[in-house]
Structures are given as structure tokens and as C-alpha cells.
Amino acid sequence: MPQCADGAVVITGASSGIGRATAQAFAREGACLALCARGAEALQETVRECRRLGGHAFGVPTDTRDPEAVKRLARMAAETFGGIGVWVNNAGGGAVGRYWEVPIAAHRATVETDLLGYLHGAHAALPYFLDRGRGVLVNNISIGGLIPTPYAASYAAAKTAVRAFADSLRQELASWPDIHVCSVFPYFVDTPGIYHAANYTGRALKPAPFVVRPEQVAAAVLGLAREPRREVVVGIMGKLGRLEHAIAPRLVEAALRLGTEAYLAQAKTAPVSDGNLFHPMPEPMAVTGGWRHSGLRTAAAVLGLAAAGFLAVRAIPHGWKAADAQRTAG
């Protein structure tokens, strides 16, 4: 493997979805890649793809919940490519269902992956950044770190915590102007992630309409490596949702709840599953999940969400008025 002037690009969760797309994007730039995921076979597929695309890559099967394993990954990346220039925290998981109906072990696994895994990555990468005096840490967080996510409470808690961690860490690194901490907030992405999620609802899951292509998120990560910024939201729906929640949080939260419950009420039944929380998913893996469809199904879903939002907007003010009248009468 060559010594790279810019050091290694380390990407966690590189076997599918956003991580795999991001690895491919960096490979097209000829980057030196140290990739990790729990599943060895799918990880090696990504490594071979990246080499074909012009990158220098190797893979290390790693569970990011294990801090020693993450440190070992960092050490191998630095020794192989002469340092670490970019670290992308991306490996993630989630549990979908009413909070009290999801096993506590599933909540713990979600937080350990989505929060502790990111802390482990940053802790492993920073000594190499500080030694070089430069580096870019990119945290792929999710729109769930900006907007409350019903039926995925522990996921939203972990993602929101990562945002706070990134903001706090950025302050501590203020004396090192060439070390950057960046956050990416994608809207729902067309990846296999929805198939991989632990599902305790008893209903088949699918993402919200207007999913973002994983290549769009990968391009955002690549852009941050070139020109670091504090944070970026990927997808127009994510940007609109963030703005709407800032303006009218109760209305947006009610619309999300009603829309989610309306979808689950009519969705097909599905077996309860732990997904990939405790073990890697079986092969094969892929970048996309096949969710970028058009036509009546998307239109129906959009109309359903719009109707839920309309009902929320109509119902909540009446609820407030009723509550105010009750307090006045009391």
C-alpha cells in the first residue's frame, strides 16, 4: 500500500448504504481507504469495488461498539497510509416500535452503536489528527438528530446526542484551526437500512417519500473533506422539516405522529425482527434499497402525510382552545 500525503480516509459501516457509497466516492478520487464493517464478506466486496474505481483500500472487520477494535483499526490505517486525514463515523442501527414494546437490549444496542460507536471513532482518530495538526472528523448523524422521531426514540436520542457531542468537541478543538468536526444530517435515504432495522411494530416498514440517493450523502461527505463546514442537511425535505420544526414544533411533531400511526395501521403485517442490531445482516449487501419509486404509491404516501399534517394543524388549535376553556372554567 502507498504512503498517502493526505493520510487515510477511514469509513465505518462501509459494507452497504451510505458507507459503501462514500467509500466509492473517495475511491474515484484515488483516496487511501481504511474501511470497516462487521460483515467480512460484504466489506471485502466494497474493498474490491474501491480498488477497481482507482482507490487504495483495505478492510478490517470491526464492531464499532468495541473501543479497542476501533483503536486497532485506526492504528492499522495510520501505519498503512502514513497517518489519518479523514475519519467518517457512519456505522449505525436502530430499533423501530413503541418505546416500551422494544426490548431494553435493543435500545442499548442502538445507543451503543449510534452514540458510543461515534465516540470510539473520534477518540481513536483525534491523536492522529493532533499529531499532524490537521484532520476532518465527519459524523453521519441523520435528520433524526434534528427532528423528534416517533417510534424510534432511542435512535433519535443517540443521534441528538451525537450532534451535541460534535458541537462540544468542536469547541475543545478551537485552538487547532485545521482540525474540523463536521455533521451530516441526511433525510430518509434509499439504502437497505430500513431492511436492516430492528422492527418491533409487527408491520412492514418503508421510508418516507422523496428518499435521498446515497450518492448525494456521499457527495456531501466528500465535500466536507475538501471544504469543512460545521454541518450540512442533505435533501430538500430534511431542510424543510428542520425549518418547519423550528417554527411550529408542536404541529410538526403531531403530524409526524399521526402520519406514522396512519401508515402503520394500513401496512402489511411483518414478523418481529432484531435486524442487524446484534449480528451483521446476511449477504448480499448493496448501496441502494430500491426505494426510489414513482407513481401512485408515492403519491398516495405523500397525500397521506399531507392529510395527517392537515389534521394536526386543524386539531391542535382546537385542543388548545378546549384546554384553555377548561382551565378558565376551573
Rank of each mutant, 00 (worst) to 15 (best):
C4S: 15
A8M: 05
A8W: 06
A8R: 10
V9Y: 10
T12Y: 11
G13K: 11
A14P: 09
G17L: 03
I18P: 11
A21C: 05
A21Y: 02
A21H: 05
A23Q: 01
Q24C: 08
A25Y: 03
F26L: 06
F26N: 05
A27C: 03
R28I: 00
R28Y: 00
R28A: 03
G30K: 01
C32K: 12
C32H: 12
C32G: 11
A34S: 13
C36H: 03
C36P: 03
A37L: 08
A40V: 13
A42M: 12
V47Q: 07
R52S: 14
H56I: 02
P61S: 10
T64P: 07
R65K: 14
R72G: 13
R75C: 02
R75T: 10
M76D: 15
F81W: 09
I84K: 13
V86S: 10
W87N: 11
A91D: 06
G94Q: 10
G97V: 07
Y99R: 09
Y99V: 13
A105W: 09
H107E: 08
H107K: 10
H107S: 07
E112L: 14
D114L: 04
D114T: 04
G117L: 04
L119R: 01
L126C: 10
P127I: 11
Y128T: 09
R134W: 12
V136Q: 10
V136T: 15
I141V: 15
G145D: 06
P148I: 02
Y151A: 00
Y151V: 01
S154N: 11
A156I: 04
T160L: 09
V162M: 09
V162D: 07
R163W: 01
A164E: 08
R170L: 08
S175G: 14
S175E: 15
D178H: 15
F185I: 03
F185K: 04
F188Y: 14
D190I: 06
Y195H: 15
H196P: 00
N199I: 03
T201E: 02
G202K: 13
R203W: 03
A208N: 05
A208T: 12
V212T: 14
A220F: 04
L222G: 01
G223F: 07
L224A: 03
E227A: 15
R229D: 02
R230K: 14
R230F: 08
E231D: 14
V232G: 01
K239N: 06
G241F: 01
P249C: 05
L251H: 01
V252S: 05
E253N: 13
A254S: 11
R257Y: 04
G259V: 00
L264P: 09
L264W: 05
K268H: 09
A270Q: 11
D274V: 08
F278W: 11
F278G: 13
H279L: 13
H279N: 13
H279Q: 15
P280R: 10
P282L: 06
M285L: 14
A286V: 01
A286I: 01
W291P: 09
W291M: 05
W291K: 02
S294H: 15
G295Q: 10
R297V: 15
A301F: 06
A301P: 00
V302K: 00
L303Q: 12
L305R: 06
L311M: 07
A312L: 03
V313S: 13
A315H: 04
H318L: 14
A322T: 05
R327V: 15
T328I: 12
